[in-house]
Simulated assay, not measured.
Amino acid sequence: MSFKRSLALAATLTLSAQAMADDPLKVGFVYVGPIGDHGWSYQHDQGRLAMEEHFGDKVQTTYVENVNEGADAERTIRRLAQAGNDLIFTTSFGFMNPTARVAADYPDKTFLHATGYKQAENLGTYLSVTYEGRYVTGAAAGMVTESDTIGYIASFPIPEVIRDINAVYLGARSVNPDIKIKVIWANTWFDPAKEADAANTLMDQGADVIVQHTDSPAPLLAAEKRGHWGVGQASDMSHFGPKAHLLSVVNDWAPYYIDTVDKVMAGTWESGDYWGGIGDDVIKIVAVNESLTDEQRSKIDELTKAIGSGELHPFTGPLNNQAGELKVPEGTTMTREELAGMNWYVEGIDATIPQ
C-alpha cells in the first residue's frame, strides 16, 4: 500500500469514527397505555421528554404507546431494535418475557425492563418503590376516613400490586386500628369506564377513600362527584378533582432515565436491578389537600421523611399473613427478593388474591 493510500485510509477511518461519535444515541420506549392516560405511561413519557431536554441532540428518542402485553409487545420491541435503537426501555410487567427474548437476539443493544426480574448482560430491570408512597397514602386515608373503609382498585395480581395493597393497609392501620380495605380487581391498566364503575361499586360498599392501581383519573372524578376522597396515581391528578383529591403519589422517572442514558453513553452501564423511592426523588408525595389539619399534614410529612431517610421501612416485622402465620419476624425487614415475589396479603385484609 502506497504512502498516499495509507494516509487516505487513515483519514477515512478518522472521519468515520468522528461521525459515529457524533451520531445521537437512539433510545426507544414501549408503553402499555396511552401517553395521555395521566398515569403510568404519561409519567414515563414525561421522563423521556426530560431526558431529551437534558441531552439535546445527543439523543434521538422514539416511543410506541398502547402496546398489548404478549406477542404485540415482542413485535414492537423487535421493530425498535431493528430500527437501530441502541437503548430500549419497556415499561410494563407483561413486557418482561418479550423483552428478554429480543435482548437475547440483540446482544449489542441495551434493554431495560420496568417492574420485572429477568436480567442478562445486556438486560437490566428498574422499579419505582411505589409501596413507599402507598404507605403514606394509607396513613393519610386512615386519618380522613369517616367510614373506616378504604376502596382499592387493583389492576393485575402481580407482586407490585399486592405489595402496594398491603402497604396502603399497613399505613392506614398505623394511624387507625379500625381500618378495613375492600379490593376490586379491574384486570386492566387503563379503562376509564371500568375504573369508574369499580370506584362507584367500592363507594356503594361503604368506602369513602378510593385508591387506585390503574391509570386514568376516572376514579378520582367519581369520588369528586360523590363527595368522597381519591388519590392521584403516578402523576399529580389534583386538577381532576380538587375537592376529592387527598394527595398524589408521583413517579418521577427523569432522574433514572437521565442517569441511565449518561452511563450508556459513557460505556459504564452494567446490568442490575434498580429500585428508586422517596429518598431518590423517584417517588414524590405532592398536592396534599389544603383542607387537612396541620396535625394531619405534619403526620404525612413525618412519614415521608422517615421513609426517605430509611428510618422507616413499611415492611418491617412482625408481619403475619391472612392466616396468622408469621412471615416477617420482629425487627426484620423484607429483602428486595422477598418483596419482588410477594404473593400474600398481610393479616387483617379481608380479600382474596385471584389465581
Rank of each mutant, 00 (worst) to 15 (best):
L303K: 01
K109I: 11
R173H: 01
A141T: 05
L9E: 00
Q43M: 13
G310C: 06
G142A: 03
Y274T: 04
A140P: 11
M51Y: 04
T99P: 01
G331I: 02
A198L: 08
L7G: 01
D191Y: 10
E53P: 10
D208N: 03
V231D: 00
W229G: 04
G317R: 03
S92R: 07
A196F: 14
A244N: 05
S174N: 12
Y42D: 15
K299E: 14
H44P: 04
T332V: 14
L312F: 00
R173C: 12
I179P: 05
V102Y: 03
A21P: 11
V264G: 03
E270S: 09
A234N: 11
F89S: 04
R75T: 15
G276Q: 13
G317F: 06
V30Y: 13
G272T: 13
D23F: 09
F3E: 12
G331D: 15
T125W: 05
H44Y: 08
S271D: 03
Y257T: 01
G28N: 01
Y106A: 10
K118C: 07
I153M: 04
D45A: 04
Y257N: 03
Y274E: 15
H245G: 02
V175S: 12
N343W: 09
V30M: 09
E337D: 06
T62K: 06
T91G: 08
V144L: 15
W269P: 00
D23L: 15
Y152D: 07
T335V: 09
G70V: 15
L80Y: 04
S216W: 02
D37I: 10
G33P: 09
G277Y: 01
G94Q: 08
N289W: 05
R48I: 08
A222M: 01
T14Y: 08
R173S: 11
D86Y: 13
L303W: 07
M96N: 09
E52K: 05
T304R: 08
L7F: 06
A244K: 06
S174V: 07
T90H: 07
W253Y: 02
Y106V: 04
Y63Q: 12
D191S: 09
A186T: 13
I165F: 01
K180Q: 11
K26S: 11
Y131G: 13
Y135I: 02
K58N: 14
R79F: 06
G33Y: 12
E270I: 11
